[in-house]
Write a protein that binds this DNA or RNA. Structure first.
Lengths: 199, 199
DNA sequence: GCGTTACGAGTCTGACCCGTATCGTATTTC
DNA sequence: GAAATACGATACGGGTCAGACTCGTAACGC
């Protein structure tokens, strides 16, 4: 994206902020409507945004750069654990997985799975989005250990995968159609807490 | 795919089996090399297979039909749990998730994530592949309950998601680069068995 | 008002692809 | 050997798209 901050000098007409927004919005809309990443064309975006193709090329080098910016815009706010009960905080965090303020996110997320393995940029973007959320969960788990609610010998990283995995495969991959997504966060957290072994 | 069995009548030259194989192989190769499903073109497949386009169109109605057949060919054999220890069987099954006899499968799997949410056919194909594997795990869990190794009040479906999810997000989405994939099956199974709660 | 830059809209060239058709040739049955 | 069907190769019309370009117009600083 072009720099916006350090440009006190502007001899001619400034770039339209509305065009910026319209282009990004059009991109996300088209993706959410079912277009695949690579079926997405600059021409379609321009038409949808009510913008000339040149206006897009003036701002981004190509489709990849535009997509990177558009997806960055999508990530939204993170859930904030209350900090009272470890169990409740975990339920909150697990429930927030794959959920987003922007409803388009749910449709777009699965499209990223192939991109993540193909482009280092996309992989980095993906990690940038999820790693602070992982950190949040990590802190809750550490707090649980400190408070003595969780065992001290657990592997925190594996536990995060344990909590995150079921939710993610259900939301993104529709892994098991018979599984009720609504109550899943609670049930996952409780199962992980208690274990399934007889004792 | 055209029928091959009930064709005792064949007035002319029979279809080449080598062409069949070459086309399927070329399709899987191209996918494994990083082509996305929709970037895949019949022309590219034909060239790669050393085959005329007409030869492909003579066998399949279009790209979708060909892909369906190609992916069917990919799924490979299921792991067979030994039936001695519930824990060991679970480790085996969890370790088999996303692992395939065909090394190309690992590269191709992530490409299916978007397709699953877009086409009912692809979703069905995907479910057809994984639901027998889910069944296998379900049986091991039920056996564990019967044998008294596992608690009787666990939710079997949630437990399957618990075991499968971490492995799947790691193998398919590279969820956490710091997580060691090699030892993950064991660690996931043990964590799920024991739970993380202090007691 | 003048130079500068952005704007939406459109054009143009060169790719690439689909799906069909047509080559000359090869392989089968009768 | 004749009819039938397959083969690889290639050509075709029709389509989409990338990017660079051109319009006439609009918004800014001086």
């Amino acid at each position: 994206m072009t720099s916006t901050a350090d440009a006190p000098r502007s001899p001619g007409r400034p770039r339209s902020i509305r065009a910026d927004e319209a282009i990004i919005e059009a991109t996300l809309d088209l993706l959410a409507e079912g277009s695949t990443i690579e079926a997405l064309s600059i021409e379609a975006i321009a038409t949808r945004a009510g913008v000339g193709k040149a206006t897009i090329y003036r701002r981004w080098a190509g489709k990849d750069a535009l997509l990177l910016d558009a997806l960055r815009r999508l990530k939204g706010v993170m859930a904030q654990p209350a900090g009272h009960s470890v169990r409740d905080d975990l339920v909150l965090l697990v429930g927030a997985i794959g959920k987003n303020v922007d409803p388009r996110a749910a449709k777009i997320m699965p499209c990223l799975a192939p991109a993540v393995n193909r482009s280092a940029d996309q992989f980095q973007l993906y990690q940038n989005i999820i790693s602070p959320r992982r950190q949040l969960m990590r802190e809750v788990l550490r707090r649980g250990i400190d408070e003595g609610v969780l065992r001290a010998d657990i592997d925190v990283e594996v536990t995060m995968a344990l909590l995150t995995g079921p939710m993610l495969i259900q939301r993104v991959l529709q892994w098991n159609p018979d599984l009720d997504e609504q109550s899943l966060p609670e049930r996952v957290v409780d199962a992980v807490l208690e274990g399934i072994q007889a004792r």
